[in-house]
């Protein structure tokens, strides 16, 4: 643990019992986030991003088994009572989900939801909480905030709802905000606005943030560090510029190459990744990416590569045959 570490996830495993057998959704993940820093977590659908964030928030499905340690702001979250956890989640550890309706209550007005959160956690009186609510809605770019307080979530567009969810998440000045695909359900123009909003509030409040997404484009200009996940594991982790320019992991390279590029000529064939991720209830003996990896060799089939340090600081990767010098972002 380095100085200024706010969150540290140590050797976290999440197992889910399923009719097909045990499903290891998160497999021995180590991560740290410094105070005021931004971490991007990227990976394909089903790679365990949401389960990892739920493990941090201690909001896993009941049947899930969690092992490892989650240290947040000097406290071991696995040891906290449900009551203390609930307090913490409203206050210093906040979350925004992909679908804003997950965090909003459909039968309560926007005002009631904001004011109740503020009253509960900050012990403000009604007047102060109302005033603060109006300020928060204005801060997240909602026009005519006084009138919005009286509205119900269904009366707002998807983009507006996500803004409200962000306002509630920010209301108690959290130290860490986890945003799990906050813009996947939104349009490109609205998506850019919401990401800007998050970045602005993050800087202004010196809040740490984890942005979870499957889109490398979303994390590129907006994070300090990126962790790439595949089949439940972190397979590469690096300061953002290094990840894009000096990636070592074939999966990261493949993921970036498969993105359609806006500056490529039409009808340029895309370097697709063949096949799909392995069935998480049937873990592979060797590297999980081996069946799809163009660099795979014999060792990859029988042994799991561990996360190792690269030569540049803060850069780690899990691969037996790492890429030397990558073609970089423009490739």
């Amino acid at each position: 643990m380095t100085e200024g570490t706010l969150l540290s996830v140590e050797d976290v495993i999440v197992d889910l019992p399923t009719p097909r057998g045990n499903l290891r959704a998160v497999d021995r993940v180590d991560l740290t986030v410094g105070a005021g820093r931004t971490l991007g977590v990227v990976g394909e659908s089903g790679c365990g991003k949401t389960m990892l964030s739920r493990a941090i928030l201690q909001l896993l499905p009941k049947k899930a088994k969690l092992s490892g340690r989650v240290m947040f702001d000097g406290q071991d979250l696995l040891q906290l009572s449900p009551e203390r956890l609930r307090k913490l989640r409203g206050r210093s550890l906040a979350v925004v989900f992909q679908d804003p309706m997950t965090s909003l209550n459909p039968v309560l007005t926007i005002g009631t939801q904001l004011i109740e959160t503020l009253q509960e956690h900050l012990e403000l009186d009604m007047r102060a909480a109302t005033k603060r609510s109006v300020e928060l809605l204005a801060a997240v770019g909602i026009p005519a905030p006084e009138q919005r307080l009286m509205q119900y979530p269904h009366q707002l567009s998807g983009g507006m709802r996500q803004r409200v969810a962000i306002a509630i998440a920010l209301s108690c000045e959290p130290k860490l905000l986890i945003a799990d695909e906050p813009t996947t359900a939104l349009d490109v123009t609205i998506q850019a606005q919401i990401l800007d909003l998050l970045a602005r509030e993050q800087r202004r409040r010196h809040m740490a943030m984890i942005i979870i997404t499957h889109d490398l484009g979303v994390v590129a200009g907006r994070t300090d560090e990126v962790a790439v996940m595949y089949a439940g594991r972190v397979v590469e982790r690096a300061p953002t510029p290094a990840l894009f320019k000096k990636m070592r992991m074939p999966y990261t390279e493949a993921l970036l190459a498969a993105l359609p590029k806006i500056d490529a000529a039409p009808h340029t064939p895309l370097p697709a990744i063949s096949g799909r991720p392995p069935d998480p209830t049937r873990p592979l003996k060797g590297c999980s990416f081996a069946p799809r990896c163009r660099y795979a060799w014999a060792q990859c089939q029988v042994e799991k590569p561990r996360l190792e340090e690269a030569d540049s600081p803060g850069h780690q990767f899990a691969c037996f045959r790492p890429i030397g010098i990558s073609a970089g972002a423009g490739a």
Partner: peptide
């Protein structure tokens, strides 16, 4: 033009232009 500006570019050197909050 607005749509093109909003495209997330997978390049850390391209700082996303601050979008003007142009509403919905």
């Amino acid at each position: 033009a607005l749509l093109i500006e909003a495209i997330p570019v997978p390049d850390p050197d391209v700082r996303p232009a601050e979008t003007v909050p142009v509403g919905e």
